[in-house]
């Protein structure tokens, strides 16, 4: 028996928004520690890793480990039926082939439940090693979304370079070039509005704008976002979800062509 009750139903709706652009289907792995999801997009360029800890739920019960393969398109259709104030409960029997979503209105006078068929997914799990990144950049998530949107007009790919002075995002394309520089904030009124850079060595990597734009769909989950980079390893874009967990995106960098040289 699996049951997870979430008071802030809107949170699940936002999580769904953050996932469904990259993934068509994914396995939700439930254990007594919480709910985890790890999946790559079809082209194996990016990876989404979602973690919702059991403590973040109002009520959480998971008798045995359970992996529920869900079609995210269908799931998002169901979650659209919930209003933002609703309390959402996810339920599944052990070895069941369906999952049930229950939406309760805050004053308890309306209760709706939706049952969805599960899928049998054969997904590869990747082992992601713990890495010390050469640069970590924290910036307001809305700022990051804006940068990605603006620069993707110029070209397919974006260079993120981080130096002592700050971080520079740039893109080049047919119409010209665009550069955005962010310096470390000198004085901070609100912590989440600060730009904070921690750097061991300067890094410059190129990424596809298309994926970065998909990542920014998670902007509503968190006020700030953290980018972690090291030379020649995937970029990590992390959005913390208050009190309950995080969603992390990994993106493989673009590599110089060996023949082109």
């Amino acid at each position: 028996m699996f049951e997870a009750r979430l008071l802030q139903g809107s949170l699940l709706k936002k999580v769904m928004e953050a996932l469904k652009e990259l993934l068509n289907e994914a396995a939700w792995d439930c254990s007594d520690a919480g709910i985890q999801l790890q999946a790559m997009d079809n082209s194996h360029v990016s990876l989404v890793s979602l973690n919702l800890r059991a403590e973040g739920f109002d009520k959480y019960r998971c008798d045995r480990n359970l992996s529920m393969g869900m079609n995210l398109g269908s799931m998002s259709k169901i979650l659209k039926c919930a209003s933002n104030e609703d309390i959402i409960t996810i339920k599944a029997q052990d070895n069941a082939d369906t999952v049930t979503f229950v939406f309760e209105s805050p004053d308890q006078d309306k209760v709706s439940d939706y049952e969805m068929k599960l899928m049998n997914l054969d997904q590869e799990h990747l082992g992601i090693p713990e890495t010390d990144y050469a640069c970590t950049i924290r910036l307001p998530s809305s700022e990051f979304a804006r940068i990605c949107r603006d620069l993707s007009q110029f070209g397919e790919s974006m260079v993120i370079s981080c130096t002592k002075e700050g971080v520079r995002f740039s893109a080049t394309g047919d119409i010209g070039t665009g550069n955005i520089k962010l310096a470390q904030s000198a004085k901070v009124d609100k912590e989440e509005e600060a730009v904070v850079i921690e750097m061991q060595e300067p890094v410059s990597l190129t990424f596809a704008c298309r994926y970065l734009n998909s990542f920014t769909k998670a902007t509503s989950l968190s006020k700030s976002v953290q980018l972690s980079m090291s030379p020649e390893v995937p970029l990590v874009v992390e959005y913390k979800i208050e009190d309950i967990g995080h969603v992390r995106y990994y993106l493989a960098p673009k590599i110089e062509d060996e023949e082109a040289a």
């Binding site: 590869e124 799990h125 990747l126 082992g127 190129t206 995937p234 493989a252 960098p253 673009k254 062509d257």
Partner: peptide
């Protein structure tokens, strides 16, 4: 440039 793939960086379990 060519787009890299995550499977070249992370091992498939």
């Amino acid at each position: 440039q060519t787009q890299g793939r995550l499977d070249t960086f992370f091992k498939v379990l």
